[in-house]
Amino acid sequence: MSSQPLLSVEGLSKSYGGVHAVRGVSFALSSGEILALIGPNGAGKSTCFNMLNGQTAPDGGRVRVLGQDTTGLKPREVWRLGVGRTFQITATFPTMTVRENVQVALSSHDRKLFNLIAAMPRYARQEAERLLDLVGMGGFAMRACGELAYGDLKRLELAMALANRPKLLLMDEPTAGMAPRERVELMRLTAQIAREKSIGVLFTEHDMDVVFEHADRILVLNRGNLIAEGSPEEVRRNGEVRAIYLGEGLVYDARHREGAAP
């Protein structure tokens, strides 16, 4: 089992109107590993991400989750294989309570979507509350989701993504739009859950402080090509990555600059 990676991507490609958004990207991710995907705006990160969970169909290449080919599957089918996803701009159900948001995900996981009789407010209530407790939202269960602050929405999204007991989490800019302290807390929580349940996590991010703090390994994408891959330290030292993406390090924390003490 250990020889088989959780996620393996081979030669993934996509072009829009003659422009190559993603060109022959290959990488693998194993259980319990936290992998960051970084690169300049327009480098193809989002396209790449959307191909992994089926939102976009690739022109070429293969995606395998635990050995099973998922290329061309719809997002809902990929989800059924145990892949959870959070979005850059949170996507939740604002007209429901916080707990109902999770209950919907649970009823879908139980394949009860066409049940017309059961009363949802009582459905799998304990499991829903357990998930909310896990992300620290237990006290918000009965609140209207539409009233939540942005950071709390991100945590709710994480609880929903965990409802199908995923083996892989795809997180697109998980901390975008959050205050610096909230960013650190959310990623710490994610990393802790991932390690405990040995979930693999792939995330994109622009906040280098978050990336260098939490990623086990980093992939760097530029103009659709994978230009570097390695540990945070290796990536930080990579001259090409500095020239294209990281810049002089003026705009992120000094302790994450090249040459700084670890």
Binding site: N53, K74, P75, R76, W79, R80, R85, F87, A91, T92, F93, P94, T95, M96, E100, Q103, V104, A105, S107, S108, H109, K112, L113, F114, N115, L116, I117, A118, A119, M120, P121, Y123, M160, A163, N164
Partner: peptide, 27 residues
Amino acid sequence: IATFSPFGFALRATRDSPLRAEAIGIN
């Protein structure tokens, strides 16, 4: 009754956020 059933919630979920609904397995 249908409105408060899992079906009704799946329907509302699709209305509220088609993106999220699809991402949690709802057709």
